[in-house]
């Protein structure tokens, strides 16, 4: 099984880094798509069947919080697991993102294993949103 993912971050360097981490993680990554904000991410998700979304929170145009909100309200996209990858480590923020439907939360900077483990865990949970 190949894993198809979408990486959403306004920093190209961070998107590259996450991509490298996934490549080296031992996971079999197929399609690895990128978007620089929530709006772009939604456009990509309209056409591409991905298994997971990794998203930053603070981004121009549409931030990660709104992306989660829109995905949760979408009949198809709401079943795609979302993993938040953010520098924000405040408890309130983490809780908020999880309440909005995020399956996991990784704070930057992160150890490569942490990202991999959180991603695998967020995939495994099945879909309770139906």
């Amino acid at each position: 099984m190949e894993l198809h993912v979408l990486i959403v971050d306004d920093s190209p360097a961070m998107r590259n880094f996450i991509r490298r981490v996934l490549d080296l993680s031992g996971l079999e990554v197929g399609l690895c798509l990128e978007a620089s904000n929530g709006e772009e991410a939604l456009r990509v998700l309209e056409d591409h069947w991905v298994d997971a979304v990794l998203t930053d929170i603070n981004m121009p145009e549409m931030d990660g919080e709104e992306l989660l909100r829109q995905m949760s309200a979408h009949p198809v996209l709401r079943s795609i697991p979302v993993l938040v990858v953010s520098t924000d480590r405040t408890e309130a923020r983490i809780q908020k993102m999880l309440t909005l439907g995020a399956r996991g939360y990784v704070t930057k900077p992160f150890a490569p294993e942490t990202l991999r483990d959180e991603l695998v865990q967020s995939l495994g949970g099945g879909d309770g949103s139906n």
Partner: peptide, 11 residues
């Protein structure tokens, strides 16, 4: 297992 069939069908 892993993903229920209805979710898969929707996608």
């Amino acid at each position: 297992p892993r993903m229920d069939g209805l979710t898969f069908l929707k996608k």
